[in-house]
Design a protein around this nucleic acid. Sequence first.
DNA 1: TTCAGGTGCAAGAAATGACTGACAGGTGAA
DNA 2: TTCACCTGTCAGTCATTTCTTGCACCTGAA
Lengths: 116, 116
Amino acid sequence: MTANPPTGDELVGVLSAMANPIRLRILATLAGGRDYVSHLAREIGVSRPLLHMHLQRLEAVGLVVGSLELSDDGKAMKYFEVADFVLHLTPSVVAAAATTLTPSDPEKGPAPKEHS
Amino acid sequence: MTANPPTGDELVGVLSAMANPIRLRILATLAGGRDYVSHLAREIGVSRPLLHMHLQRLEAVGLVVGSLELSDDGKAMKYFEVADFVLHLTPSVVAAAATTLTPSDPEKGPAPKEHS
DNA sequence: TTCAGGTGCAAGAAATGACTGACAGGTGAA
DNA sequence: TTCACCTGTCAGTCATTTCTTGCACCTGAA
């Protein structure tokens, strides 16, 4: 996994996903073993909805993967674990990735907005 | 340069500095050779004040270095070039870095401000 | 039924980031 | 003087992220 080299847009996505102390802590904690949302929230010390949002962001770019499972006592638990990514960043890698960035055309249309 | 492994806070800084299409393009362009602000702005296609802001951000985390020089005809030119950084990111590297993150203590004091 | 513990989602405040336009200063050449 | 370059910065606006609060849903155990 973790296509190397990444496209420019993917790179921006992954970088902004990691560029946050809470999300870094999430990755670090999960690197020590999988965990489910509520417990992870207590572990890191953030509210559950907040953690949920961060996990969503990390999952969207493939840095973590979640799976809904059923515990012994029938509770639905969502477990997350880290994807073992490898990102090797150097000026030349960045230069290569930048060539595949979607242009920001301020002319035609307001932007490639993806509204739902 | 480019201390490896980085501290958690440094890592967040570097990552958020790179997590932007324009700044990625700046790095990519500079990887092809040094350049001065105005020319670089035309090259990339952004306004000069905007580029100035982005360069500031990149320089703050050490991804680029700038030097004010005097051209043959006496004009002051600020040249920038990329620092040849090497960032190797994996779950374990992130886990190690995360241990050195400044805690977010919303209680005691506003934060460990580091003033110069 | 009530409680504890798990899941998810959404509205809205607060903080941060991105961007434009305008201004001020410097030089050399026409 | 005026023009064409270069440098910088500030005020204000708009868009995006971040975070809290609160709701609705599920299960098994008391």
